[in-house]
Nucleic acid binder design. Sequence first.
DNA 1: CCTCTCCGATAGAGAAAATCTATGATGACA
DNA 2: TGTCATCATAGATTTTCTCTATCGGAGAGG
Lengths: 295, 295
Amino acid sequence: MNLRDLRYLLAVLEHGHFGRAAEACGVSQPTLSVQLRKLEAELGVALLERGARGVAATAACQRLLPHVRAAVAEADAIQAQARSLRDPLSGPFRLGIIPTLAPYLLPRVLAALRTRLPSLDIEPWEDLTDSLMERLRAHDLEACVIATEPNEPDLLSRPLFAEPFLAALPPAHPLAGCATVAEEELARDILVLAEGHCLRDQALAICRTAASQPMRATSLVTLMHLVAAGYGTTLIPALAAAAAREMGLVLRPLATGASRTLRLVWRARSPHRTAAEAVAQSIIALTNREWQTSP
Amino acid sequence: MNLRDLRYLLAVLEHGHFGRAAEACGVSQPTLSVQLRKLEAELGVALLERGARGVAATAACQRLLPHVRAAVAEADAIQAQARSLRDPLSGPFRLGIIPTLAPYLLPRVLAALRTRLPSLDIEPWEDLTDSLMERLRAHDLEACVIATEPNEPDLLSRPLFAEPFLAALPPAHPLAGCATVAEEELARDILVLAEGHCLRDQALAICRTAASQPMRATSLVTLMHLVAAGYGTTLIPALAAAAAREMGLVLRPLATGASRTLRLVWRARSPHRTAAEAVAQSIIALTNREWQTSP
DNA sequence: CCTCTCCGATAGAGAAAATCTATGATGACA
DNA sequence: TGTCATCATAGATTTTCTCTATCGGAGAGG
């Protein structure tokens, strides 16, 4: 069975006339005649009653008609939706982001991304790096923003921007008086996130220490509350600075100026790589401008 | 766009593998490869991401997928329903019947018709002859049972049985004592149905008179009530005899034994003519047996 | 590091299907 | 009883699909 023949059938019924239906379909009258006879033969059911004064649907045909119309309507829907998805910079784009970045980056770029890529339907998805990469491989995400290098042959990535780390201290902390903080000093009472957060590993690596804290924090906000309450110090990424300051923390640059590099990662063969590149480009442009206007 | 290609797409997504999908579809792997590329080109959208380890749907494809599945499901529904309609003695069969016959004939034959033609879905439609014929011509009915000859070139008909007329009298009526009633005598105070009922015209013709009654009755039951109440006499078809007797009317054969002939009528070119003939045949057989068992 | 294997893409030939033009058949209508 | 309108049919042509054979790339494993 063929959608074309179903359309022929609907046309003949609509016009009640093979010739006019053929014209409407842009084919010759014998074509309709042959194809509809073939359709009747295939279904084993007489669909049309050919009278001297026009053509009418048989009762059997009337029973089938709702399904015929539905099938044709679904086909039309496929084409209509495909038309709106035709632009590579359109359609759904599921974007994974790590939790230590999402709440601080998204408010800054999401609205602007919608303006720059109006047909791209960016659906943010927040999770830990490993989960994001797994979803990316499983085609459940089109791209993700992470702070590590993916190092997989199937994946491509592009650096977006470097985000400096800052020492976050309670106001009363001895180091709060220094202009910069040496990583080794921070190490003494540093608090880090729960396992799985890349920021945890990076903080420990930068401070050349291992974690031994009794508290478990699964978000930066929790961590900053702990610091504000005087349990210790921590290392936060620069984009979280405003939130930290609002909580009364003192922020100091690190002695080495260590930073993490955020990257956009996507599957090398993904048909959405064009969109991914465009998203990367846009985030780069937006964050560069941001750094300048509100450092 | 083609239903076949949509099925190919679903198969590839289901198997995640062109080769196995091709086998499932009963075609070669290049066929799927070519056809699906063509489908992607036609829609202008990348549907599949071909990876080293299998094939996956793109985000665009996932948006289209519900419509694709729906279109294929509707096509399957068409074929399934067509299969059940394949038998010419199956499917809906809208059968028109005149009001002076329907309530008396249908109870006698409908159940038996269902037994004899179990897949034929007989839907009775009661109306006056003219309306029935109009609906028949308009393909809103497959056939009708009427008491007149259609006399139209597009229509075929077949006599079902002859139904004698009986004089219906109130018990106190002078003619109630006679074994038979002469039509001229009945004519004096005969009551007939409203205009449009063929029985009205036939009764008046048989009695060689014209109607001049003040009362208007649109059903035999009403008419019989009028007779029972002593407003006059009437002529009823034999199948209504039992109902008339139950109302206390006296029934007498007519002197001439006049009767009406019921006919089944259908469109000469209707694809349901086989069913129509079968229905006619069945009614003939059933009523013949009926006459014998309960005259 | 190199081969081996697996998988999808491609090319070209062949088969199948759809379509066209021309014409036939049938019934309505004047 | 022609004439018109309408759908069906025939045969040629074009388009589309499908096949076999083969290519090329990417992992896997020695």
